[in-house]
Amino acid sequence: MALNTPQITPTKKITVRAIGEELPRGDYQRCPQCDMLFSLPEINSHQSAYCPRCQAKIRDGRDWSLTRLAAMAFTMLLLMPFAWGEPLLHIWLLGIRIDANVMQGIWQMTKQGDAITGSMVFFCVIGAPLILVTSIAYLWFGNRLGMNLRPVLLMLERLKEWVMLDIYLVGIGVASIKVQDYAHIQAGVGLFSFVALVILTTVTLSHLNVEELWERFYPQRPATRRDEKLRVCLGCHFTGYPDQRGRCPRCHIPLRLRRRHSLQKCWAALLASIVLLLPANLLPISIIYLNGGRQEDTILSGIMSLASSNIAVAGIVFIASILVPFTKVIVMFTLLLSIHFKCQQGLRTRILLLRMVTWIGRWSMLDLFVISLTMSLINRDQILAFTMGPAAFYFGAAVILTILAVEWLDSRLLWDAHESGNARFDD
Rank of each mutant, 00 (worst) to 15 (best):
V198T: 14
T224R: 13
Q7R: 09
M155I: 07
Q33A: 10
F217Q: 10
G235K: 01
F395T: 01
L23N: 10
L255E: 03
K328T: 00
G361C: 09
P6N: 08
V174I: 14
I360K: 01
L230H: 13
K111L: 03
C251D: 01
M109L: 11
L323N: 03
S411K: 12
H237Q: 10
L413A: 07
P129E: 06
S372N: 13
E215K: 14
Q112Y: 05
G361L: 03
G105M: 02
M356S: 09
Q345H: 11
E86T: 07
L132I: 03
L205N: 13
R412S: 02
V331A: 11
L404R: 03
A175R: 01
G61K: 13
T117W: 01
T402Y: 05
V163L: 15
I167D: 02
H184P: 09
Q180I: 14
H184T: 07
L409I: 12
A312P: 09
D367W: 00
A223Y: 08
L213P: 05
I172V: 10
R412P: 01
A398Y: 07
E157P: 15
L414Y: 07
S338G: 12
L413F: 10
L139P: 01
N422H: 09
T374V: 14
G361E: 05
L290E: 00
V121S: 03
L159W: 01
D297N: 02
H46A: 12
D367T: 00
Q104P: 02
K111I: 02
A83E: 04
Q47Y: 15
T239H: 03
V406G: 07
S119D: 04
F333P: 01
L278P: 04
P284I: 10
T201L: 07
G389A: 03
V163I: 12
A223T: 15
M155K: 01
M1N: 00
H340P: 13
Q244T: 10
L290W: 03
S420Y: 10
K328Q: 01
S376D: 13
I116M: 07
F333I: 13
Q29H: 11
G173V: 07
F395Y: 12
D367Y: 00
T9A: 14
G235C: 02
D416R: 11
R350M: 09
F123A: 00
A137G: 09
D410C: 00
I14P: 12
E215P: 13
I403G: 02
I330M: 15
F123H: 02
R25A: 08
A70T: 14
G292V: 10
T334R: 14
W359Q: 12
T110F: 01
S301F: 07
I316W: 13
W107P: 08
L153G: 08
P81D: 13
R245M: 05
R256A: 08
W415V: 09
W363P: 05
A128E: 02
P52T: 10
V357D: 10
P24Y: 09
D181S: 03
F141I: 15
Q29M: 12
